[in-house]
C-alpha cells in the first residue's frame, strides 16, 4: 500500500531535556500513514528518547508533538491504546508462557479473551511461533523472543508500530526473517517507525528516514535521495603500499568528487568508480587492492555523523 497523505506523527521543535543535558534538541519531522519511517544515528544521538516521547512513555519537555491526532501530554492512554511498541531490549514476562504473554498483554489493553485468543493464535502463526505457544519464554532464542515481542506489540492491532533497534544482536537468519515479516506488515498497510544503526536494515525497510546526531536531525529523505545528496553513485576503495602514502592526496586530486583518507585505505567518491580506477592506473599509482562498489547509506551516515567512535 503506498504511503498516504495523512500525517500520523507530527513533531515541531520537539525537545527532551534530562537534568543537565539535552537528549533531543528541537527536531521536526512528519510520519505519514502507511510508510516505514526510520531514525538513524550513532548511540546517544537521541533516537530512543524521540521514540519514547512518541510512545508516550517519556514526557515531552518542550515543543509540539501529535500522535494519531492526539496530544501525548493529555491523551497518553488513548494514544497508547492504538500503538504497538517494541523496545530495544525485550521485556517479555518471563513468568508466563509464550501464549500467556500475548493473552495477558491483550488484557492490559482491555481486549476480551474471546477476541484475544484467535488473534494470539494468528500472531503466533505469523511469527512462526505456534509450536512454542505453551513453552516458557526463557529458553527461546534471541530471534524468537524478538518475534514474540513484535507479536505482543501487534495484539491490539495498532495503527502505528514503533520498533527500537528491532534486529540488534540477532544472527543473519533471524534478522532476515524479521525483515521479511516487517515488510509484510508494511504491505498490509501498517505504519512503522524504526530506529536502527544498521544501514542495510534502513535501506531494506525504510521509505523515508532522518539521520540524527548529537540530539539534532542532520538529514532527511528516502535512502536513495540521501545517497544522491550526500554521496556519489559509486565508491572506489584503494589500498596502497605504505611508501606511496606520502603526497598521495595531491596525486589523486581531481579523480573523484570527494576523497577521504583513512588509516588503512583511501575512499574515492565518484559517479563511475571503474573510470576513476583507470585514471589511478594511468597516473601510475601503485595499489595493493582496489574495490569499486555502489555507495550505501553507510557512506552517507559516516559522512554526516563522522567516523569517531561514540562511547
Amino acid at each position: 500500500m503506498p504511503p498516504g497523505e495523512e500525517i500520523l506523527v507530527h513533531a515541531r521543535d520537539l525537545t527532551k531535556r534530562f537534568s543537565g543535558f539535552t537528549a533531543v534538541d528541537r527536531v521536526n519531522f512528519d510520519v505519514r500513514t502507511g510508510e516505514a519511517f526510520g531514525f538513524l544515528g550513532p548511540n546517544g544521538a537521541g533516537k530512543t528518547s524521540t521514540m519514547k516521547m512518541i510512545a508516550c512513555s517519556s514526557p515531552v519537555t518542550d515543543g509540539d508533538l501529535s500522535v494519531i491526532g492526539m496530544d501525548p501530554r493529555t491523551q497518553a492512554a488513548q494514544i497508547k491504546a492504538r500503538l504497538g511498541v517494541v523496545p530495544q531490549t525485550d521485556n517479555l514476562d518471563a513468568e508466563l508462557t509464550v501464549l500467556e504473554n500475548l493473552l495477558m498483554y491483550a488484557r492490559y489493553f482491555d481486549i476480551p479473551m474471546s477476541v484475544a485468543r484467535p488473534r494470539a493464535a494468528d500472531l503466533l502463526a505469523f511469527m512462526q511461533l505456534s509450536e512454542r505457544a505453551k513453552d516458557q519464554v526463557e529458553p527461546l532464542s534471541g530471534g524468537m523472543k524478538r518475534r514474540l515481542t513484535i507479536a505482543r506489540a501487534l495484539i491490539n492491532e495498532p495503527e502505528l508500530l514503533i520498533l527500537d533497534e528491532p534486529t540488534t544482536g540477532l544472527d543473519p537468519q533471524a534478522r532476515h526473517l524479521l525483515w521479511e515479516r516487517l515488510y509484510r506488515l508494511k504491505q498490509r498497510g501498517a505504519t512503522l517507525i524504526i530506529t536502527t544503526h544498521y544501514m542495510d536494515e534502513a535501506e531494506q525497510l525504510c521509505d523515508r528516514l532522518v539521520v540524527m546526531d548529537k540530539a539534532k536531525i542532520v538529514a532527511e529523505g528516502s535512502p536513495r535521495e540521501l545517497i544522491e545528496r550526500y554521496s556519489t553513485r559509486e565508491v572506489l576503495e584503494l589500498r596502497v603500499p605504505e611508501a606511496v602514502r606520502a603526497g598521495l592526496m595531491e596525486r589523486l586530486d581531481g579523480l573523484a568528487e570527494r576523497i577521504e583518507e583513512l588509516p588503512d585505505r583511501y575512499l574515492l567518491y565518484a559517479a563511475d568508480g571503474e573510470q576513476a580506477l583507470e585514471q589511478v592506473h594511468a597516473r601510475e599509482i601503485p595499489t595493493e587492492s582496489a574495490l569499486v562498489r555502489r555507495a550505501t547509506l553507510e557512506d552517507v551516515f559516516l559522512r554526516l555523523t563522522g567516523r569517531s567512535l561514540v562511547e
Binding site: 521485556n91 517479555l92 514476562d93 498483554y105 492490559y108 482491555d110 491490539n156
Partner: peptide
C-alpha cells in the same frame, strides 16, 4: 516498562 506501554 512493558505494562506502561499499554494504556495502564
Amino acid at each position: 516498562e512493558a505494562i506502561l506501554a499499554t494504556p495502564l
